[in-house]
Computed example of a mutant assay.
Amino acid sequence: MQSPLFPLEKPTQIIQSNGDVIYYPSIFSEEESNELMLSLIHNIEWKQEPIWLFGKKIMQPRLTALYGDQDVNYGYSGITMRPNPWNETLIFIKSKIENLLKSEFTHVLMNFYRDGQDSMGWHRDNEKNLGLNPIIASVSFGTSREFQLRRYESKLEKKSVMLNHGSLLLMQGETQHYWEHQIPKRKKVNDPRINLTFRKILG
């Protein structure tokens, strides 16, 4: 892999009212991103698990995995995930993110979108064990997908950004109180994308 000192493109502030969302278009080089993508596809224990949605049990429209510190599990939407131990690829990515943001993370929740039919519905990352104002560092590899945000209460004000290969989206401050986000389905997308959301889970 290349040096973690790969020069960053200028970040863009997506939200700064009742939240703080910043987009870094490229924190890994293309060569580095390609190598990391392949490693994640082949060296992660991906699963497709059922969740409860509006009172019904359905299979998640994507593959998921949780890696991190072994003494703390993570739960959402009626499922509890036990973390796998960190591997070399994840430690490399984690170190890059922590050095850039000057923050520490205990876990990474990963999503594998196999094509445009895989998606993530509207939600907030507001579980109690993430703390009051969690820092969520979202790294993307693979095909670009649209990331949408909207005001949680009114549903009126909306923001959108394309998450590119090797990019980072940072959500922090009051974001999870006032904004929700999703990855919508896209029929014309045929290629895969992997997303890693680094977070600090409280014991």
Rank of each mutant, 00 (worst) to 15 (best):
M1D: 01
M1S: 04
Q2T: 14
S3I: 11
P4G: 03
F6E: 07
P7R: 09
P7D: 11
E9H: 12
P11G: 07
T12H: 12
I14F: 14
I14T: 10
N18H: 14
N18Y: 15
V21D: 05
Y24A: 01
Y24T: 09
I27V: 08
I27Q: 05
I27C: 14
S29L: 08
E30D: 04
E31L: 11
E35Y: 15
E35W: 08
E35N: 15
L36I: 05
L38A: 10
L38V: 12
S39Y: 01
I41M: 15
I41H: 03
N43Q: 10
E45T: 06
E45Q: 13
W46T: 10
K47C: 10
Q48S: 11
E49L: 15
E49N: 14
I51H: 08
F54Q: 13
K56S: 05
K57A: 09
I58N: 02
M59S: 13
M59N: 15
L63W: 00
A65H: 03
Y67H: 14
Q70A: 12
Q70R: 13
D71A: 14
D71F: 10
Y76S: 05
Y76K: 15
S77R: 08
S77F: 03
G78T: 03
G78Q: 00
T80S: 15
T80I: 13
M81C: 07
M81S: 02
M81L: 15
P85R: 03
E88P: 06
E88C: 11
E88W: 01
T89M: 00
I91Y: 02
I91C: 11
K94N: 01
I97H: 05
E98L: 04
N99D: 11
L100V: 09
K102L: 13
K102P: 01
K102R: 07
F105C: 03
V108E: 03
L109Y: 00
F112L: 09
Q117W: 13
G121E: 09
G121K: 08
H123C: 06
R124W: 12
N126R: 11
N126G: 12
N129L: 13
L130F: 03
L132M: 07
N133K: 15
P134F: 14
S138T: 06
V139A: 06
F141S: 01
F141W: 01
F147I: 08
F147L: 00
Q148F: 06
L149M: 11
L149D: 06
L149H: 02
R150M: 10
E153D: 02
E153R: 06
K159Q: 02
K159N: 13
S160I: 10
S160D: 06
V161A: 06
V161P: 01
M162S: 12
N164L: 11
S167T: 02
L168F: 08
L168R: 01
L170Q: 03
M171A: 13
Q172D: 04
E174T: 10
Q176D: 13
Q176A: 09
H177E: 10
H177F: 10
W179R: 10
E180Q: 04
E180R: 07
I183A: 04
P184R: 15
V189M: 02
V189A: 15
N190C: 12
N190H: 09
N190S: 09
D191L: 08
P192S: 14
R193F: 05
R193S: 02
N195E: 00
N195C: 05
F198H: 01
F198N: 06
K200V: 05
K200G: 07
K200M: 08
I201T: 00
G203H: 08
